[in-house]
C-alpha cells in the first residue's frame, strides 16, 4: 500500500474515474511511478481525456508548450503538484 497525500488521492481517483481504470484502485498507484508507457500504461488518448477531466474539476487547461510537461505527466506525485499550484 502506497502513501498518498490528500491531493494525490483525489487526483488518483480522478484518473481512475476519467479513464475507466476499473481494475485498479487509488492504492495501487505508486505516487512516484510513471503514469504513461511502462507505469499505468496510459497513452495520448488518455492524456486528452485527463486534460478534459482536469479542466472540468480544477478549472485550468493543460497545455503542451509548458516546458515541464514531460515532468508534469511523469508521475502521480508531479501531476498532483502541478494541479495544486494551478487550480482555480
Amino acid at each position: 500500500m502506497s502513501e498518498l497525500s490528500p491531493i494525490e488521492l483525489e487526483v488518483a481517483n480522478l484518473i481512475i474515474d476519467s479513464l475507466a481504470l476499473e481494475d485498479i484502485t487509488a492504492a495501487d498507484i505508486v505516487p512516484g511511478d510513471a503514469l504513461f508507457n511502462d507505469g499505468l500504461g496510459l497513452d495520448s488518448i488518455d492524456a486528452l481525456e485527463l486534460a478534459m477531466a482536469i479542466s472540468q474539476k480544477y478549472g485550468f487547461q493543460l497545455k503542451s508548450d509548458d516546458a515541464n510537461n514531460a515532468q508534469i505527466f511523469s508521475s502521480l506525485r508531479n501531476l498532483a503538484k502541478h494541479i495544486e499550484s494551478n487550480k482555480t
Binding site: 495520448s44 492524456a47 486528452l48 486534460a51 478534459m52 479542466s55 487547461q61 493543460l62 497545455k63 503542451s64
Partner: peptide
C-alpha cells in the same frame, strides 16, 4: 501539431 484543446486555441 497542437494536442490539448488549449494548444489548439493558442
Amino acid at each position: 501539431k497542437p494536442f490539448f484543446p488549449e494548444d489548439i486555441r493558442h
